[in-house]
Amino acid sequence: MAKPNPKGPQKTVDIYCAKCWTQLYKYRKGGKGALVKCFKERIVKDHTDQEGVCPGCKQAFARETMIRGAPALKMIGGKVHMK
């Protein structure tokens, strides 16, 4: 399979923890669907201390994985919201 386009889309979204509303990432997201995964190369600004764990409430919101040969974070359902 093909790797995701490294340049990625121009539209950015803010990703927040669903529990404490702490901002986690600013991310270049493509498409209109739900946030299922975040490719690490598309993260514009990272507000987390530990990967996949909210700095505010220490809740795990994502798991590290490889998707189409690129490192990514697979989001746990219902743990994050985006604006």
Rank of each mutant, 00 (worst) to 15 (best):
R42I: 00
V44M: 06
R68W: 15
E51I: 02
D14S: 03
F61A: 07
K83R: 13
A34K: 12
M1W: 15
M1N: 10
K40N: 01
L73S: 12
V80R: 00
C57V: 03
G31H: 08
T48H: 00
E64V: 08
I76T: 04
G77W: 13
R63T: 11
V53Q: 08
G69R: 10
T65W: 06
F39P: 05
R68P: 01
H47F: 08
K29F: 07
C38W: 08
N5S: 07
R42G: 03
M1S: 14
A18F: 01
I76M: 06
D46N: 12
G69K: 02
Q59K: 04
V44F: 06
V80Q: 01
G78Q: 09
K37S: 10
P6I: 12
I15H: 07
K26P: 05
P4E: 11
A34S: 12
E51T: 05
K79S: 11
T22V: 15
G33C: 02
P4W: 14
H81D: 13
Q50N: 14
K3C: 08
Y27T: 05
K26H: 06
G31A: 05
L24R: 00
W21I: 13
Y27D: 06
R68Q: 12
H81L: 05
T22S: 14
A70K: 08
N5V: 05
D14N: 07
I43V: 10
